[in-house]
Each structure stands twice: as C-alpha cells, then as structure tokens.
Computed example of a mutant assay.
Amino acid sequence: MKRLWIVPFAAALLVGCSEEKPPQAVRPALYVVVQPERSEHLGRFAGNIEARYESTLGFRVPGRIVRRFYDVGAVVKQGDILANLDPTDQQNQLRAAQGDLAKVQAQLINAQANARRQQELFDRGVGAQAQLDTAQADLKTTAASMQQAVAAVNQAQDQLSYCNLRADHDAVITDWKAEAGQVVSIGEEVVTLARPEIKEAVIDLPGPLAEALPKGIEFQVAGQLDPNVKTTARVREIAPQADSATRTRRTRLTLDQTPPAFRLGSSVSVTVSTPIAEHFELPVTALQDVDGKTRVWVIDTQTQSVSPQDVTVLSRDTRNALLSGGLKAGDKVVIAGVNSLTPGQKVRLDKESSQ
C-alpha cells in the first residue's frame, strides 16, 4: 500500500516542475536619449563686427596729399591730424590777403585823418559842407573795405588750416581711400573713422528670409575663431533694397552684450532660428505602428525594463522622424528591435547611440 501512495505523489511532483516557465532573457538595448527641439534652424551666416557709427572724412580744400600720419586700425583722438596737403597755394593766398589788409589799414588811417580835418575846418566856418560829406563818405567806404579785408585774411587762414585733416571725434581708422602724393578735390573721400564704443554684427541675408523674419527674432552670434565667445542679438536695421549682384540684404544686429573678443573687423558666425512647438527627432527605427497608432519603447532606468509610449508623428523620411507628445527630455528610447519587445521586458543598457 505504501508503494501505491508514493509513486503517484512523485509523479505529481514531476508534472508540476515541468509546468514552470523559464526566466525571460535580458536582452541588450540600443537607445538614444531624447533631447527636445524648441526652435527651427533657419540658417547660419558669416558676418563681421562693425561700429554702428562711421564717418568718412575729406579735405575741405583741393590739393596734393603730402603725408598720412596713421595706418588702418590706429586709435586716434579728437583733433589729431590724420593727413595733410601741400599748403603752398593756401599760404600764398594768406599772404595776398594780409597784404590787402595792410593796404586798406593805411587807407583807413588816411580817411580818418581827412575826415577829422574837414570837420575842424567846417566847425571854424572855413570849410565847405560838400567837402565834409565827401570825407565822411570816404571814411565809411574805407571802413567797410577794412572789414572785408579782415574777413579775407580769416578765410585764408581757415583755408590754410584745412590743409590738415583732423579727427572730429575719438575713433578707429578703418579705411584709407587715398594715398600720399595723390591729388584730391574738395570733399573727396579720404579716410573712414569708426566709433568703437558701440559695435554691432553685420550679415547679408537672402532676400526672402530677410522679408519673412518674425518680429523680435533672436540671433546667436559666436566668434569664428573661438565659438565659445558668443552672445545674442536682434535686428536693428535691414537694408530696404537687395544687392543687385547677390540679391541679399544687408542686416545690422544690435548685440545684447559685447565680449572683448568682438573687436572691430572680427569675423563671426550668426545663427538664425525661430521658436516653434516642442518636438523630438528620433530614428525611424524607433517607431512601431500598432492598430493605427505609433509608439516608441521607453526604458525605465530604475527597473531596467521597457514600456510602450504613444507619440504623434509630425513628419518622417527614410532616416528620421519628428515627433510630439508622450516624451520628455532625458527619456531613453529604444531604437533597434522594437518589434520584438514586450511591456515590462528587462533590458541591458549596453550602448547609447549618438544622435
């Protein structure tokens, strides 16, 4: 009887053990870390740092340039002589004006003495009224000629001083348009001065992009030699007409900050982007279409398991897809073998894909 009880019990134990499920295998997971995009990249353009205020100076008299005292890039102070002309002609004009003045001064002395004599004779009753009137008229005419001669001397002195081209404000020389020995006319452009205290970035934007820029759009400005030197900027001025050759429009940007490395003439890289609704970009291999819905598999780093998450596909191509909803920054999403995953499946985070 004992054998009849023992054998069935042992058989039952064997049957029970055979029905236990084997443990689920932990599979490696290739994944990416989700990074949201909140702006749309519109382009990157090369530009320069320029002064907001520039002035181009020229001589106020014609002549031949004798000397230039500074080179491009020199810092000058208000009143500094930048260049000068041969002053021979102006010196001769000044001498002539001074000679005319001396002549008129002598005539004025003579006219004053004559008018005084005629007045004395008239007062004693021995002089004629007509002679007194003539003497007084000559005195007034000579006095007027004296004023004219003084003005001519002052003008000649000014003309001589104009042979020196002076800086009208503290500035940096950015360009010379004439060389020593060159003959220039009145007002011809000779030198360009820039005020260094206010700087801005200058770029050339394609016409359609310049016209479509949203109001208040922010630009990212970084140094080309050192991209870590950067700041933000906003549009100050867009040229009303496009360049006839390139069809671009000169755009000037006001810098929110001016790093010391942004010197006049420095090359910068300007990035244009516009705010958009938050979205994510993932490889199309991360998507799984089930029952008309699209989902991705998110890894729970605490439990080392995966779970499905529904997402909305904004657009996709053969390589990448733009998604919205369901994800947040820092989520780890599986990008390979998603069709063989099951909810709660254990995974091993062996490798992270760079995206």
Rank of each mutant, 00 (worst) to 15 (best):
I81Y: 02
R38Y: 08
R117T: 03
R44S: 14
V72D: 10
G58T: 03
D80L: 00
L94D: 01
R95P: 01
D86C: 08
Q98A: 10
L82I: 07
G79F: 01
I49K: 05
Q98I: 04
I65K: 13
L85F: 08
V104R: 13
R67H: 10
S39C: 04
A102T: 10
G99M: 09
T88L: 15
G73C: 05
V76H: 00
R52Q: 13
A74I: 09
L108F: 04
T56R: 11
G73N: 12
G43Y: 01
Y70C: 09
A106Q: 08
Q91G: 03
Q119F: 08
G127W: 02
V126G: 06
G63K: 07
R95Y: 07
D100M: 13
D89Y: 11
Y53W: 12
T56I: 08
R117C: 02
N114S: 08
E54R: 12
Y70D: 06
F122W: 09
P62R: 01
R95Q: 15
Q91F: 04
A102Y: 00
V126Y: 10
E120A: 15
Q78L: 09
Q112P: 04
A115N: 01
N48I: 15
G99K: 11
E120R: 15
L85Q: 01
S55Y: 09
R95G: 05
R68V: 05
R67E: 12
V72Y: 13
Q90N: 04
G99R: 09
Q129M: 13
Q98N: 03
D71H: 15
Q78R: 15
L82Y: 00
G73E: 12
S39K: 04
L101K: 10
S55V: 08
A115E: 01
A102W: 00
Y70G: 07
N110Y: 13
I81A: 15
D80N: 11
R52K: 14
A115I: 03
Q107S: 06
F59V: 01
Q107D: 10
L85P: 02
N114T: 09
S39Q: 07
S55H: 06
Q112K: 12
R68H: 10
S39Y: 03
A46G: 12
R116A: 09
P87N: 11
L85R: 06
N84C: 12
R44N: 07
V75M: 06
V76P: 01
I49R: 05
R95S: 14
G43T: 07
R68Q: 14
G63P: 03
A51R: 08
